[in-house]
Each structure stands twice: as structure tokens, then as C-alpha cells.
Write a protein that binds this DNA or RNA. Structure first.
Lengths: 245, 245
DNA sequence: GATTCATACGAACGCTGTTCCTATACGTTA
DNA sequence: TAACGTATAGGAACAGCGTTCGTATGAATC
């Protein structure tokens, strides 16, 4: 084998420049005959993205992914080390798609908030995919490209390096958590789930009807359930950005 | 059956006051004979906490949990609806243990940071348990008690209600994400995992050795990898608290 | 002593990630 | 042209997961 999945992953984790992959044959070898397109890492990643976009991260199983490529689950392991490895490939690819502006000291706050929003939107296109993020090695080149870009914006804004570094960590962690929570909530709403999946109005009246032990929650039920779209997200990101500079 | 697990969960999700549970017999009914302690929700939750504390949330499977109680997995379903329900019970119990101070307008910032740190420490005692948090219904009384307490502190500090509500959300979400990330990192360090689980020194020199496309990451490798203990956590919580008032 | 019923639980189902081992078809060499 | 070696593909299987079905048990009730 020219490059085993393990070798490829090890190279990725050591930030070695990816050697040019030889373009694979246009047809698939093996028992199926030459009728299908060959299985490649790219094809796997692409099919995985589509599967997640349509049915969420829970639907991403090796069997279903293999089925989408018209093969069996074992075939995937010739290209991918395991499911975590696939997750890392997905997150890497996703980070690549987040465009980063040239840092501008005049508008750095907006630049930063905008980049976070773009990252958020990419995450939300693939519900639940953030579950894979925390398992990605901190030396991954593609996620580092994103960090580098965000860090550059912070530094251009005159934020002290140590503050910038920690703020970067806090921001990305929050974006992940926000998207994960939102995806889970939506998934439960979509599922055949039970009665206590309540609308916002219902939730507010529930809060208002709480016993006396919850005076603030009762009183501010409206505020606790307020916020359309990504108001909450914008609030928190602004809070952090304003806090650091 | 006096109260099925479904009934119990429905009551919990509708904030009905929990009726007094009749104290169970001291011995277990059924095929095993009267030699073992009876299975109760409390016993299940307690065994689950112990299992997680010792081996992490991944080790919490219905089979292993049943084994710890000297029974089979099917026996648990007479007391717990499913694994998500168990997770909700665990998070509820955990939230109960977080002590909340009487709100003091003079020291509200410290009170808030302290409460977050206590929540953090409870989470970290049970590595990975935060994975269950996002699946908990927002009407859960025990998690609401915690929210109520944190909200009261924010309001005592003179924070505007809407700001307080969103800041509360941001803070708890961050605490979750921080603990989840930390637990995952530690779990990988403990596991038989591969070479790219690197020490902090190693990580810093890796950053410093990056190609030219990563100037800021190279330059501030020290800052990016800095922080002992919960420095990062303290930084972010302070950032948020200072930002709101 | 016979009946009732909540509790307990063995066995099984369908699913998961992963590995072993074999079959295929191509690129190369004889 | 024929044979070979090798990279790819994939069927079958394994251990483990959450969950459910049906049954066996023991204590409480009549």
C-alpha cells in the first residue's frame, strides 16, 4: 500500500506537508468490477458531509456511509483509520471553508464576530458535527489555520498576546458549545419525542408558573426565554470581544 | 406498579412536587432471593456516579451499571426510562450538590465566579458527565434551582434582567464546554493513545516550528500554550462577569 | 393455603465500530 | 501472450451497545 491511513494520519498530526496524492483510477478495482467510482478519502468525506447535512451526525455510521458509497463498512478502513479519524478529516475540511479576512485594526471587532458567525453557520449546516471537534488534535493544520486567522485579528486589534490567546480559546469553545446545544435541541424537536419538548411560549409560561422557590425565574421568565435567531450567540460573542479590548 | 419510570419522569418534567416515595423493603424481591439489597433509583444513581468517577462517562453502560448492582441490564429499566433519563437524574443530583450563597451586592462577582468554579469541580469529579447535560430538559427542577441561584446573584449585582439572563446562559454553556474538553483531553492522555498526544512543552515547540503560513501561532506559541490549573477557566469567567457589569 | 401483583431478570433483537481473511482486477514483468 | 505481485474491495464475523419481551420469583393480601 502506497500510504496507509495510519501513515497519512501520522503525517497530518506532525504537520508534514501533504505529499501530492496520485490521482486514482477512474473506476473501482475489486470484486465489484470496474463499474463504480473508486473509493477515496475525498469521496468518503464528501459522502459523510452529505449524510450529516441530511440526517444529522447521529446518522453518520460506518455502515450507512459505506452504503452511500455502495460498498461495505470494511472498505472504508482502507482509507480512514477509524471514526475519530474521519471526524478529524471532517472538521479539518469544514475549517478550510471558513473565510478569514485580512486583519484590519479599524474593524477588527466586526471581523472577529463575523468569522465566529461563519464558523457557527458551517457547524450548523451539519447538525451535531461539533461533537467531533473536541477530539481533534490541537496540532491539526487546518484547525490551526483558523486559529491563526482569528489570533491575527485579535492581535491587529491591539489585544495583548496572552489575552488574545485565551480569548481565542474561549471564543472557539463557546462557538462549539452553542452549536452543539442548538443541534441537539433541534434534533429533539424533529424527533418523535415526548410532550415536554415545549415551545418557547410554553416554556415561558412554565417558568412563570413555578413554585415560590424560584422567584427570579418566575419574574424574568420572559427574559430567560427571549432571543430570536442568534441573538444569544451575538450577545455572548460581543461580550467576550468587548471584554478583551 | 405504583409509579412507573415514565410517570416519574413525566412528573419531573412538569415540575410536579415529587410525592414521598415509600421506603422499599430492605431486601430484593425476585429470582435472586432476598440476599441482595433492592434496586432503587437512588441505588442506581449512586452506582452510576461511582462508576463514572472511577472510569469516566464512557464506562457508564447499562450492562456495567447493572453488573455493579449484581443484576442484568433489563432490571434497570424498571426504575429508569432509558439512558438519557439516567443522565438527567445524574445531572440533577449533581446540580443539587452545588452550594449557592445568599446574593450579596457587595461581592456578587466573587459569588458568581465561585459558584461557577464549584459547578466546574463537580463536573470534573465525574469525567465526561457533561455530555449528559445538554440532553436535560430546560424545565428540570434541579437544574433550575442552580439557574435561579446564579440569576439571583447577577440581579443582586445590578445587572439588567435581559443581560443577566443571557449571561447566565453563556456562563453555564461555557462551564459545560470547558469541562467536557478537559475531560476528553485527560481521557486521551490516560488511554493507550498514540504518539501525538503531546505534552504542553512539546506542543509549544511544535507551534514554534510551524511553517511560515502561521506567523502569529509561531510567535506566540508560549502564550497559546500557557496556563496552569484553571487559569483559562478563570480568565473566561472573569471576562464574562466583568463584561456584564 | 390460594391468589395477586410489583419486582427481577435471562434471552434475544437490531444496531454499532472494528478486524480477519479472501476475492478481484490492475500494472508490471517474463 | 502469460504469469505474477500487489493494492483495493468487501463478506463474514466479533464483541459490545441500548432496549424489549416474556417469564419466573417472592412478598403481601384475601
Amino acid at each position: 500500500m502506497a500510504r496507509s491511513p495510519h501513515q497519512r494520519r501520522n503525517a497530518r498530526h506532525q504537520q508534514l506537508p501533504a505529499p501530492a496524492e496520485k490521482t486514482p483510477a477512474a473506476v473501482r478495482r475489486g470484486p465489484s468490477g470496474g463499474t463504480k467510482k473508486p473509493i477515496t478519502v475525498d469521496a468518503i468525506v464528501e459522502a459523510a458531509f452529505q449524510l450529516i447535512a441530511e440526517e444529522g451526525y447521529d446518522a453518520l455510521t460506518m455502515r450507512r456511509l459505506a452504503g452511500a458509497l455502495e460498498t461495505g463498512p470494511a472498505s472504508l478502513y482502507a482509507h480512514v483509520v477509524n471514526k475519530d479519524d474521519l471526524g478529524e478529516l471532517l472538521i479539518g475540511r469544514l475549517c478550510t471553508r471558513v473565510e478569514l479576512p485580512e486583519p484590519d485594526p479599524a474593524t477588527w471587532r466586526d471581523q472577529l464576530a463575523g468569522a465566529c458567525a461563519r464558523l457557527r453557520d458551517e457547524y450548523l449546516r451539519y447538525p451535531g458535527i461539533t461533537r467531533a471537534t473536541l477530539a481533534v488534535a490541537p496540532t491539526n493544520l487546518e484547525t490551526l489555520r483558523l486559529s491563526e486567522g482569528l489570533l491575527a485579528i485579535l492581535l491587529a486589534g491591539g489585544v495583548a498576546p496572552q489575552t488574545a490567546a485565551w480569548a481565542l480559546d474561549a471564543l472557539t469553545l463557546y462557538v462549539n458549545a452553542y452549536c452543539l446545544e442548538l443541534s441537539l435541541r433541534d434534533a429533539r424537536r424533529a424527533g418523535p419525542d415526548d410532550a415536554w419538548v415545549v415551545s418557547r411560549d410554553e416554556l415561558r409560561s412554565r417558568f412563570a408558573a413555578l413554585p415560590d422557590g424560584f422567584p427570579q425565574t418566575k419574574r424574568y421568565a420572559a427574559e430567560l426565554t427571549a432571543g430570536d435567531g442568534h441573538d444569544r450567540f451575538d450577545f455572548t460573542v460581543d461580550l467576550m470581544i468587548k471584554g478583551v479590548g
